[in-house]
Design a protein around this nucleic acid. Structure first.
Lengths: 246, 246
DNA sequence: TTTCCGGCCGTGGTCAGACCAACTGACCCT
DNA sequence: AGGGTCAGTTGGTCTGACCACGGCCGGAAA
């Protein structure tokens, strides 16, 4: 039943043996290399799966597994239909934040990591983030911050938009810092550590929070890094006391 | 027997239509949920692909695509052979560092991110990392640090092990901090920002680096956070001057 | 007996071809 | 002109087969 020609000549005593790569792995690596080398630029469309299968001389199944892996890695997007295909995804610093957040979420829900460790790192980053924001903020950043705080001041503490506004507030500061890596990190860490806050929030805590926010914005507006640092430290310490009242 | 929960019920609009999910997506989501819910524990082996296909009433192709995606997400490992199969991968804080590093590497090679931004974030994290290390270090941590510095002191500046030793040094400090998230971050950021260092290293720079390392270890040994912070700030500033001599 | 070799066999990996599903665009009918 | 219809392109799924890998076990060799 087995009379096909075999292409394995792998028995050799010398060290000329080399690692054999699976077809899927090779295809995936080739495409990835093409992306990183610039042969395939962002937004560009790859050949159809059938065409790729012809070029690589493998089955469409193998090509699809390679593309599936690349898709999961956020390197390409696949859209069905006539005008569809596989498109090189433009990965920017924003995707880094998303990825980081997902991973953190996994670790937190699996229990192999405590929220306290994450929150601590977030605070370490938010201090320099606020300092930088005070130095580099634009008028546009300032306007956004003021608008957010204004909304926070007017709505009630049990408004469903409270968490969203708080997230936007901290994200806006991180963005104003001018460091995109910092911004992505702070944003991701914030989104993973914040939700616990607003479960039981008293009106007085909400008022104090808004006041502290105003203080931070004021320092940023005046381009005063030291005051901004002091304000954010006070704010984080206050929140910390209500989060982990150990 | 409900597996989906919707929070849109408060909205009494006639929104009956729901997103149609592809089979692969559903299978993937089910398995992921099984992992996170604890039904599948770390290291546990999933049923064979054929068996999963029967249970989900889909083809093996679909199951394989779902498993491929989960594999790429580092949620499961697949091993071929007789005793093989799909195993739930125990994801810990270490995988977070790896993931972060890969993503950073992608962004840096694609040019959509400058190394300077990454280096800056790393420095922001390494200061508290060193402070914490001075407070929480164990005798074991200390021995490792001393051994590393001793090696750095004896080898020459053009030794190929120099980058590796430096990486181990900073990683050991981050680990000694006791915060695993912080440790993973510092390690990943270090691995992505360091390589540029040792391209043109003069003997005097090497000597100074080792001296600064010794100073840091001394402060950590004496459990003196302030001295440790001062030492690491000096070290980072020195390196920065030789990295970005703007 | 002990060791080693060579199949058996379960499992993932790949292949081939077909059909289904989503979408585009041109074409036709009103 | 507007809207519906149909063909064509492309990804998504199905089917069934075979290949590659590696643990297991029985039999041969030391």
């Amino acid at each position: 039943m087995d009379s096909t020609l075999t292409n394995d000549e792998s028995n050799s005593a010398k060290l000329i043996g080399q690692r054999v790569l699976r077809p899927r792995q090779q295809v995936e690596e080739r495409i990835r290399a093409a992306i990183f080398s610039g042969d395939l630029r962002s937004g560009e469309r790859l050949p159809a799966e059938a065409e790729l299968a012809r070029q690589f001389e493998v089955s469409r199944t193998t090509v699809r597994e390679a593309l599936r892996s690349l898709t999961t890695q956020n390197l390409i997007d696949k859209v069905p239909g006539a005008g569809g295909g596989s498109f090189v995804r433009s990965i920017d610093h924003h995707s880094l934040g998303t990825l980081l957040q997902e991973s953190l979420h996994n670790l937190l829900t699996l229990g192999s990591l405590g929220g306290e460790e994450v929150a601590m790192v977030r605070q370490y980053l938010e201090v320099p983030s606020t300092r930088l924001a005070a130095e580099h903020r634009t008028e546009e950043d300032l306007n956004e911050l003021r608008e957010i705080v204004e909304q926070q001041r007017t709505i009630s503490v049990d408004d469903p938009n409270v968490p969203d506004l708080d997230e936007r507030f901290h994200a806006a500061i991180a963005r104003a810092s001018g460091n995109r890596v910092l911004g992505s990190f702070v944003h991701a860490l914030h989104r993973e550590t914040e939700p616990v806050h607003y479960l039981d929030l008293s009106p007085s805590v909400g008022k104090t929070t808004v006041k502290q926010h105003q203080k931070i914005v004021k320092a940023i507006a005046e381009r005063d890094p030291d005051a901004a640092e002091a304000a954010i430290v006070e704010h984080l310490g206050y929140l910390r006391k209500h989060l982990f009242p150990s």
